[in-house]
């Protein structure tokens, strides 16, 4: 659809584009700052204050070399990818089913079920009982402790519910008349219509799982080989925190200059894969979003 360009429209467009450019700039700069700092000369980095637009001194990869020499990083990457995929599959299935059930107004359990699920958003038992449940299920120190308990949550179900609510009932009615069962309706007919929302909750989940160190720190104390990247990263960040000096030995090995550099490098190593993967994923995401299409 071709828009008529009135003067007010032109002004609006100019302002809008200018705002977007400015906003993008503000979004990018701090990340750029960290990236450039991670390549900087560590000594000059310390004396610097303010934004770093290009690496200070000669570009150095020392920090990255130090971080990558830590073999945990590779282990962590592998585990994180596994956890992200596994929880996403469970989460999507659970949220689709949950959202479908809740949105089904003539299904008698939808209201009690909604309440049942919503309560979990409000109340949680806390760390100790949670641990005991995982322990009694025999999941402690296994991958299951990360994959199963945290994946389905009320928030995603509620999001799917409101997405289902927006769909015209006609789809389901006609499918029912054609003799399709609820499962067929859900996965074959309705889900493709909700690609966009599914894409959104997948993205939520991927980011959350990518940065989730807490569950692993609680449920996997004996199995470092199962830890996700985020937990290793947190260790490295905290390890280099000289304000938490415990002993002389710790202090002296930590207080060298590269400690500061390492933080920036770890940040980049932990963030960059997501940042790089996102534009590719976005292709599908946007395609999903534009199903309903702003054609004009």
């Amino acid at each position: 659809m071709v828009e008529k360009l009135t003067p007010s429209r032109v002004i609006f467009n100019i302002l809008n584009y200018a705002f977007m450019i400015l906003f993008s700039f503000v979004c990018v700069i701090p990340i750029w700052h960290v990236l450039m700092a991670s390549l900087s000369n560590p000594r000059m980095l310390m004396a610097n204050s303010g934004i770093i637009f290009k690496p200070l001194g000669d570009i150095t990869l020392d920090g990255y070399r130090m971080v990558m020499s830590n073999k945990s990083i590779i282990t962590g990457y592998g585990n994180t990818i596994l956890y992200v995929i596994a929880t996403t599959v469970i989460m999507v299935l659970g949220s689709l089913v949950g959202g479908f059930l809740l949105s089904h107004k003539d299904f008698k359990l939808s209201l009690p079920l909604a309440l049942f699920i919503m309560v979990t958003m409000m109340f949680s038992g806390g760390l100790i009982p949670g641990y005991m449940v995982i322990q009694s299920l025999g999941m402690l120190n296994t991958r299951w402790a990360i994959i199963i308990p945290g994946s389905i949550n009320a928030f995603y179900i509620m999001m799917m519910k409101s997405a289902f609510d927006q769909l015209p009932a006609a789809y389901e009615e006609s499918a029912t008349i054609d003799g399709a069962g609820p499962l067929t309706i859900l996965f074959v007919i309705l889900t493709p219509l909700l690609k966009a929302t599914v894409a959104v909750i997948i993205m939520f989940n991927v980011i959350m799982q990518w940065n989730n160190w807490f569950n692993a720190s609680i449920y996997l104390p004996k199995r470092r080989d199962l830890w996700p990247l985020a937990l290793f990263m947190r260790e490295i960040l905290i390890n280099n925190d000289t304000s938490k000096v415990a002993t002389q030995q710790d202090a002296e090995s930590a207080s060298n200059m590269t400690a500061n550099l390492v933080k920036y490098c770890v940040t980049i190593i932990g963030t960059l894969p997501l940042l790089c993967a996102y534009p590719f994923a976005q292709k599908y995401f946007v395609a999903g979003v534009q199903m309903g299409g702003v054609k004009g």
Partner: peptide, 24 residues
């Protein structure tokens, strides 16, 4: 089939969210 679908969901939330609530 909707009722059947409800069962695993309820179980999931019961085990991982409700049981630990005794911690309250």
């Amino acid at each position: 089939s909707l009722y059947i679908l409800t069962i695993p969901l309820v179980l999931y939330f019961f085990i991982f969210n409700y049981v630990p609530m005794f911690g309250l």
